[in-house]
Design a protein around this nucleic acid. Structure first.
Length: 565
RNA sequence: GCGCCUGUAGCUCAGGGGAUAGAGCACCUGCCUUCUAAGCAGGGAGUCGCAGGUUCGAUUCCUGCCAGGCGCGCCA
């Protein structure tokens, strides 16, 4: 047995191989004409009476050979070998679905795996250790993190966890734009605030950062450095202000993200990169490869050759590089660090940037699919019916800190993960902070807490705890609610892998809700701590496995799994 | 004008070339002397934005249109 595959993965692979064998045999015997068979996909039918697994491959073949699904399905089933398999029965249904009905022996094996793997259950080897660099949030160090950053943080961190579980080696990275115009502007804004605090009539620069956090920062700076810093020569003063402002802003951002339960592997500094001259090098390479030209005193990149709608400036007519250059150098640096695949999570305002960046990488000689960009859509804060106004220009926006303060980490992450990343999100603050059944966060956490509570009770009443697969009579678990729950638990590793590949963390939330729902049904139908000791032991076993899966799923989502509520 | 995203139940949203389109909230009916009722069981609720096309089959894929959000700098 391939231990890097889940039990469900093994079962599915076995069934798929049998179907492939049946199709081959059908061709040999002339039941089907010879032609290239399509990929065989196994799905879970919508209703239990349609079996454990189903395939629509007969319909796909029927289309190719101009036949009808049911007769092709008949030809496949006729040639299907069920010897030595978990398959009890095969049906043909509807327009040509082949439905497979299995016994419970595989479920027993699947449950034993959960027991054995515990906190590691859910991991598979599909990723084969491929190295992925996942860059997300990467907010400018010019202000506090906002709610879109919070969404990107939730999505990125969860996706990283899902990919890790799927057997990839993932590095979480935050790119710090600590060089360039904006941080200069930040330093100038800070200087103005300092001078204002000292009673000078110093206006903020045009397009300066107006947020109140800079007043706090100015106070902090004056307290630690005194006003002599303002008397330094302009250039030195500017550098000192810049490095102070940037380091304090980055520290704050890092702290916010830590409060969110998110820890990056790398904080990558643009300034440091520039100090190596990597940005100049990128321009040189592009020039040597003939992807640049001069026009109006500027150097342009032929990004239109890579699908961009216009060529882009690399070096402005004043000799300064554009933002794009160090960013491209940064992505080159990522590749040169040996990563097999790069994923960027960007905000919706950057979608026009993607062609340029991927085109740039391709021009530098990297594979076209090396970079993958996910766009996370906007967040609108809502209180009941009322939209919370946010204006970035005026410096009035709800910060990530305020959001966390108000609704808490768990609800926050849950709400951000609940929706697909590319859909616009209405975040209802009232609902998110509601400590009641209306709030879906608690539905999942409650299931986990309920299980913990059962074990507390069981310990008090002297039940035998910790009976593993070898001591438990598995056949006692035969209530429909128990079977359905076990099937869901068995699906976890495959589910994690599929969700990771699809880059859709929202489906992890859906999965957790499904498991919680199945557990609650089981809880209501089946008394765990009862008179029959063997039955209780079996159900305690199932409860423990459910708890393991919920805890693992919640951990991947960055949401806590409470012992009591 | 061009590009990206979205349009599915009263609300917020899943889903996805096929078998009776799902969940939560809201609404209605039942269920606590036994492991947490932040729960369970059941009910009503939908022309899957509109119109064409591909297909044996489209809510799903393609095209056009309508509506909403966001972008479109020698800013970052």
């Amino acid at each position: 047995m391939d231990e890097s595959l889940s039990v469900l993965g093994q079962v599915k692979r076995d069934i798929i191989q049998r179907i492939a064998g049946a199709i081959a045999r059908a061709k040999d015997r002339g039941d089907l004409p010879g032609y290239v068979a399509p990929e065989i996909k196994l799905e879970t039918p919508p209703r239990p009476e349609q079996g454990d697994f189903a395939t629509g491959v007969a319909m796909a073949i029927a289309r190719e050979i101009k036949s009808d699904g049911r007769s092709v399905a008949g030809a496949i089933v006729k040639n299907l070998s069920l010897d030595d398999s978990s398959i009890l029965r095969v049906d043909i249904a509807g327009p040509g679905f082949i439905n497979f009905f299995l016994g419970t022996d595989w479920l027993e094996r699947a449950m034993a795996r959960i027991w054995k793997e515990g906190p590691l259950y859910g991991r598979t080897g599909y990723g084969q250790g491929k190295r992925i660099l996942l860059e997300f949030v990467s907010a400018n160090p010019t202000g506090p993190l906002n709610v879109v950053n919070a969404r990107a943080a939730a999505v990125g961190d969860c996706l990283a966890a899902l990919l890790e579980a799927s057997g990839y080696s993932v590095s979480r990275e935050f790119y710090v734009n600590d060089a360039g115009n904006q941080v200069s502007l930040l330093a100038d804004s800070l200087e103005a605030r300092c001078r204002q605090l000292l009673g000078e009539d110093a206006p903020l620069p045009e397009n300066g950062y107006r947020g109140e956090y800079l007043i706090d920062l100015a106070r902090e700076l004056l307290a630690s450095e005194g006003q002599k810093i303002l008397e330094l020569p302009p250039e030195e003063r500017h550098e000192r202000l810049k490095s102070f402002a940037v380091s304090r802003m980055v520290e704050k951002q890092r702290k916010t993200l830590l409060d969110y339960g998110l820890k990056y592997d790398t904080w990558f500094s643009e300034k440091t990169l520039r100090e190596t001259g990597a940005h100049r090098q990128v321009v040189d390479i592009l020039r040597e490869k003939g992807y640049t030209y001069e026009k109006d005193g500027a150097i342009w990149f032929r990004s239109t050759e890579f699908g961009d709608d216009k060529d882009r400036v690399l070096v402005k007519s004043d000799g300064e590089i554009t933002y794009f250059v160090p960013d491209l150098a940064y992505h080159k640096n990522k590749m040169d660090r040996g990563f097999d695949h790069l994923i960027d999570i960007l905000g919706p305002d950057h979608h026009g940037y993607v062609k340029r960046l991927s085109g740039g990488l391709k021009a530098l000689g990297y594979p076209e699919d090396a970079l993958e960009v996910l766009i996370v859509q906007t967040v609108r804060l809502v209180r009941g019916k009322e939209v919370v106004k946010m204006s970035k220009r005026g410096g009035e926006f709800v910060t990530m800190d305020e959001l966390l303060e108000e609704v808490g980490k768990d609800a926050c992450r849950f709400f951000f993960l609940m929706r697909s990343p590319e859909s616009h999100l209405d975040f209802d603050l009232d609902l998110a902070k509601l400590q009641s059944s209306e709030n879906p966060v608690y539905y999942v956490q409650y299931a986990h807490a309920r299980i913990a509570s059962i074990f507390r009770q069981a310990r008090q009443e002297g039940f035998v705890l910790g009976s593993g697969p070898n001591e438990v009579r598995f056949s006692l678990l035969r209530d429909p609610s128990e079977i359905q729950l076990m099937k869901a638990l068995a699906a976890f590793p495959e589910e994690v892998h599929e969700i990771a590949e699809a880059r859709e963390p929202n489906r992890l939330i859906k999965y957790m809700i499904d498991v919680a729902s199945l557990f609650h049904s089981f809880y209501t139908r089946c008394r765990v701590l009862g008179e029959e000791k063997e039955l209780s032991a079996a159900r305690l076993y199932l409860a423990r496995l459910t708890q393991v899966v919920l805890a693992n799923a919640l951990r991947m989502a960055g949401i806590s799994a409470p012992e009591s509520m």
